[in-house]
């Protein structure tokens, strides 16, 4: 099952709620900073994404969209 998680990188505030919510532990904050100066969240291994959208649901800033086959 292929799934895709897309981050609106510059809107992320690096709150890490998505990192904690991900059941397969594939989200982490990046080393680099975004336009706001935060370390934005990103996916470390897209192939493991199950498309559950937990990350998107908990993101307060509507940074994340999730797609699935």
């Amino acid at each position: 099952m292929a799934a895709k998680v897309i981050f609106d990188r510059d809107r992320c505030k690096g709150c890490e709620l998505c990192v904690d919510a991900c059941p397969v532990h594939i989200l982490a904050l990046e080393e680099s900073t975004n336009r706001k100066g935060y370390h934005p969240a990103g996916c470390t291994d897209t192939s493991k994404c199950i498309g559950c959208a937990s990350c998107a649901r908990i993101c307060p800033d509507s940074v994340i969209s999730v797609y699935r086959d």
Partner: peptide, 8 residues
């Protein structure tokens, strides 16, 4: 791919 979660 179909959207599972997109901004409302």
């Amino acid at each position: 791919m179909k959207p599972v979660y997109v901004k409302s």
